[in-house]
């Protein structure tokens, strides 16, 4: 971890330090760290545990449980292709395969230049305008395989 990463970590943890009688909230702390650093490095587990007054194992347990907590930084842009039932019914699987081919990247991975990380999601709540592709916080609806290059183009 860089010096900047370390100070970012300490700063993000400070508001999560438990004030008795409140009990420590591990998930809240991990989300705060992720929001500051972009991910929760496993090397930070001990420091998080110390600040919260819990065991390393408890922190690891929560970190590994939630799919939106990441232990590696994503690419500059995160693509999440919805695989909910409405998107599946509208053949979102074809969109996912097109993105994989277009970027030459598999699900859960990023390109060598780290522009995009590709993930699946189980529902974006955009079922009436499906299939859905989410890039960062932008939701794109009724996406067809041929839309893929122009959809990804603006994200640099």
């Amino acid at each position: 971890m860089t010096t900047r990463g370390r100070s970012g970590l300490a700063e993000s943890l400070e508001p999560c330090r438990p004030m008795p009688p409140d009990k420590p909230n591990i998930l809240k702390a991990l989300l705060a760290v992720q929001s500051a650093l972009g991910h929760v490095p496993t090397s930070a587990i001990s420091q998080i545990a110390r600040v919260l007054g819990v065991s390393d194992a408890q922190v690891s347990g929560v970190l590994s449980y939630y799919s939106d907590l990441r232990i590696q930084s994503a690419g500059r842009h995160l693509i999440r292709v919805c695989m909910g039932e409405s998107c599946m019914a509208n053949h979102g699987g074809r969109v996912l395969r097109t993105i994989q081919d277009h970027l030459r990247v598999s699900v859960g991975d990023h390109e060598p230049e780290r522009r995009f990380t590709l993930e699946q999601m189980s529902c974006a709540g955009n079922c009436a305008v499906s299939p859905t592709v989410m890039v960062d916080e932008d939701l794109h609806g009724k996406v067809t395989p041929s839309d893929v290059p122009s959809l990804l183009e603006p994200y640099r």
């Binding site: 909910g84 039932e85 409405s86 189980s122 529902c123 709540g125 955009n126 079922c127």
Partner: peptide, 11 residues
């Protein structure tokens, strides 16, 4: 935590 795919009324 509207997790059921196909639902969006809570959102």
């Amino acid at each position: 935590d509207e997790g059921d795919a196909g639902t969006y009324c809570d959102r």
